[in-house]
């Protein structure tokens, strides 16, 4: 295992050290004293394990494909944005836009997530043990978004095909968001996934499922009211 201590060094230097360790064939790296620096662990494409021992700033684990990244503290905005595959686990909470535009992989947040969680999500899975702020799932295209606690206002606004699940209360639904009963397959998937990541979470059958009402998929003058709110 390689150990990198951030100390007073710049993000550029720390990321370069991570890349050096990867090039030397290290498959487990621990990064100490991340000090909430931005852009740590960006663009990693190797199937490695990296642990940031502390909190990280914006875009940690952004644009990655394959690694398994753990953050023992909290994360700033844009956690794991645009990731293609891999796993990102945050033991604390995350700032705005966590898992924005991800295309695959799994993002796990043990605390709460701020606004715009999983915005423009294109695939993969987002799991939040706590609650999330407003506009989570906005314009979600594919993939699954699971919030075990409460969801803020404008939840699941303007969805395409993302399936959203909420274990607690939904403060308000977004435009064209529709609540429906989870299918037996959804419940089975929730149970097995949550058992793996959050053993104390509610059971799958306690979740509400939110999907697109599909009124925004193609313009229809009879749905003018919906469009007026969406645009």
């Amino acid at each position: 295992m390689a150990e990198i201590t951030c100390g007073s060094r710049s993000t550029r230097e720390i990321n370069a050290d991570i890349r050096k360790a990867l090039a030397a064939g290290e498959r487990e790296i621990i990064v100490r004293e991340p000090g909430a620096r931005h852009n740590l662990g960006v663009g990693i494409l190797e199937p490695v394990r990296i642990r940031f021992a502390g909190s990280v700033g914006y875009y940690c684990a952004g644009l990655i494909d394959g690694p398994s990244i753990e953050i023992t503290g909290s994360a700033g905005w844009g956690l794991a944005e645009s990731m293609m595959s891999g796993e990102v686990v945050v033991r604390g909470s995350s700032g705005n836009g966590a898992a924005a535009a991800i295309r695959g992989g799994t993002v796990v947040i043990h605390g709460d997530a701020a606004a715009r969680l999983g915005v423009s999500i294109k695939g993969g899975t987002v799991l939040v043990a706590g609650s999330c702020g407003y506009m989570a799932g906005f314009m979600g295209q594919k993939g699954r978004l699971v919030v075990c606690g409460d969801a803020g206002d404008a939840f699941a606004d303007s969805l395409y095909e993302t399936a959203c699940f909420v274990g607690g209360r939904i403060q308000g639904l977004g435009t064209d968001a529709v609540v429906e009963a989870p299918t037996p397959e959804d419940i089975a998937w929730l149970d097995s996934t949550l058992a793996e990541y959050f053993p104390g979470a509610p059971r799958g059958k306690q979740f509400q499922k939110v999907v697109a009402g599909r009124k925004l998929w193609n313009f229809d003058k009879r749905e003018w009211k919906v469009w007026q709110e969406a645009l």
């Binding site: 993000t11 663009g43 875009y59 844009g78 944005e81 314009m139």
Partner: peptide
């Protein structure tokens, strides 16, 4: 969408630009 999913204004954009540089090694 009209707005980027992970930044809002010019201050956040400074960090975004840095992220793109990190991702492409400058």
């Amino acid at each position: 969408p009209a707005r980027h999913p992970d930044f809002l204004g010019p201050d956040d954009m400074i960090i975004k630009v840095e992220e793109l540089r990190e991702a492409t090694d400058g």
